[in-house]
């Protein structure tokens, strides 16, 4: 019997290894392999047509790809910073509330409970240029007499998407920062008051360093989320019109499934992953530095 020769520890972790290999390792290797072929979903035999790094060269030289890449970074930067500042403000306000705080915290989490697809539909309706709430309101109030093309104009469409994203995810920052605010010891804050700090100085010199680790944890998590943003954009604009709101994953999704060029899509996917990895490493470094600053890590 063969299994008798296998060491016991290996037998015990074997089920986990098999499952992980089946659902993660094999698809990963398969997609990596296919990115070196001209694999098209419509012609399965192309899976064995090895074309070397052609897909990668094509992606790197493609203006469309880099435009989507740049737009993703822009989207990520603006959305994350807005969410951070709004979330910080929200957390600071909620932490001051003494009555009904628990209920406020729960209400604050409502946007997180919706599926991004639904949020996309909701804002697609709100920003619709003919029947949307925003235009309707602007016109009824007499602030505008034309239909503003919220989801058609390049800048306005980007704004609308960021607005939806911020609406949905600010509370992630707010909740994490609130947790940070609750974990701050009282004593240093009181010491700062006695030491002569104004409320702003207390915040700047005492509170902020204490909640920095929490901000960076939120940033790391959210940067991964936003870097793979797909659903909201897909629903609201489908990357259009004419690729004006095309971000990485709408481009990759379209290339892979609509155009059926899976090999090329996989190649773009692998390039894009570096973006996510870069942000993760960057924020974890920042997180660690902030923790060292507080003497929580060495």
């Amino acid at each position: 019997m063969i299994y008798k020769k296998l060491p016991q520890w290996f037998l015990l972790i074997l089920p986990a290894i098999i499952i992980l290999a089946a659902v993660i390792l094999i698809p990963l290797l398969f997609s990596l392999y296919s990115s070196f072929t001209s694999y098209r979903l419509t012609r399965p035999d192309t899976l064995f047509n090895w074309i070397g790094t052609f897909n990668y060269e094509k992606a790197v030289k493609s203006g469309v790809f880099w435009a989507a890449f740049g737009r993703t970074i822009l989207f990520l930067t603006i959305a994350l910073n807005l969410e951070m500042f709004l979330g910080l403000g929200l957390a600071l306000l909620v932490s001051r509330v003494t009555r009904g705080q628990r209920m406020l915290r729960t209400i604050m989490m409502f946007p997180m409970m919706f599926s991004p697809v639904l949020v996309g539909f909701q804002f697609k309706f709100i920003f619709n240029d003919n029947v949307g709430l925003v235009n309707n309101a602007l016109q009824s109030l007499g602030l505008s007499n034309s239909a503003i093309p919220w989801l058609v104009d390049e800048k306005l469409a980007m704004f609308s998407i960021i607005f939806a994203e911020v609406w949905m995810s600010t509370s992630v920052f707010a909740i994490l920062i609130l947790a940070g605010l609750f974990s701050i010891p009282q004593d240093p804050q009181e010491a700062a008051k006695v030491d002569g700090c104004t409320p702003w100085q207390s915040f700047r010199h005492i509170t902020l360093p204490f909640i920095m680790p929490f901000i960076f944890i939120a940033m790391a998590i959210r940067s991964l989320d936003v870097a793979r943003a797909y659903d909201i954009v897909q629903v609201m604009t489908n990357g259009g019109p004419a690729r004006r709101t095309e971000i990485l994953w709408t481009l990759i999704g379209r290339t892979g499934y609509v155009d059926a060029k899976m090999g090329y899509a996989n190649a773009m996917g692998y390039v894009s992953i570096f973006l996510a990895i870069f942000f993760t490493i960057y924020f974890f470094k920042k997180l660690n530095a902030a923790r060292v600053e507080l003497g929580m890590a060495r």
Binding site: P188, A191, K193, V194, D195, G196, I206
Partner: peptide, 16 residues
């Protein structure tokens, strides 16, 4: 507190 010109030493040190 900042306008009272006092200093305080706390039980848990309260260092930054």
């Amino acid at each position: 507190p900042r306008d009272r010109n006092i200093s305080m030493v706390f039980q848990n040190y309260a260092l930054y």
